[in-house]
Amino acid sequence: MLETLLSPLRKLGHWVIEAIWRLGMISRFFVAILMNSGQSLLRFHLVIREMYFSGVLSLIIIVVSGLFVGMVLGLQGYTTLVRFGSADALGALVALSLLRELGPVLAALLFASRAGSAMTAEIGLMKATEQLDAMSVMAVNPVARVVAPRFWAGVLSMPILAALFNVMGIIGGYAVGVLMIGLDSGSYWSQMQANVDLHVDVVNGLIKSLFFGMAVTLIAVYEGFDATPTAAGVSAATTRTVVTSALVILALDFVLTAFMF
């Protein structure tokens, strides 16, 4: 009887301790990355190379999703705005929703599931096939040579991808609002221009995506580096990257929004 009462409690306690322990490990890993970043910055082509991989991997999915999200925003926004007789404000609505929220958040979610998971799998496989061991036996620190360039590449790619997502979304909104529904093209753009503030909306959105980029890439490289070096271990780590990233992005978004707007 006592056992059945205590067992969930014990599980909860175990889960909490485990979570805090992992948080500590990730933080220490983050510090290790920062301390070993000198090489990535001096040999910046290493970062560019990883940006090419993670960025290009995510490009198609970002462009296509951005376009569709913008089109949906155009449709939904129009049907709502027209009830209040302010369909002209569609441009502002689409741009503000994207810049402040949808762009950074959705781009980060897509980036996590495309590039983040690939990063975890790649580093995990390098571990499983002794490539990381080989590197450190060659007196090359894998955190400096493998992890740090990927981390910075992810951090730098994320705002660029989010900006691209925003641009595609605004084009999608334009396609639906102006080309399909027939709103005035001039008012779509001028409403947008009048209502979007460079600092409050654009810069804050980019800051958000910078944070998301850090969080997603940190999780991705940590999970890869920490993976059990077997096929099953790598696949479990990949799943964890996607799930943890999604949760962290959404939680972080709430915190950042509360501070910013």
């Binding site: 490539q131 036996v137 007196a139």
Partner: peptide
Amino acid sequence: ELFELRRRMGMLFQFGALFTD
């Protein structure tokens, strides 16, 4: 010191461990 030592050391891993990328 370890890295200093390893610079004068070569190791052939069981499955080669070539960098796949």
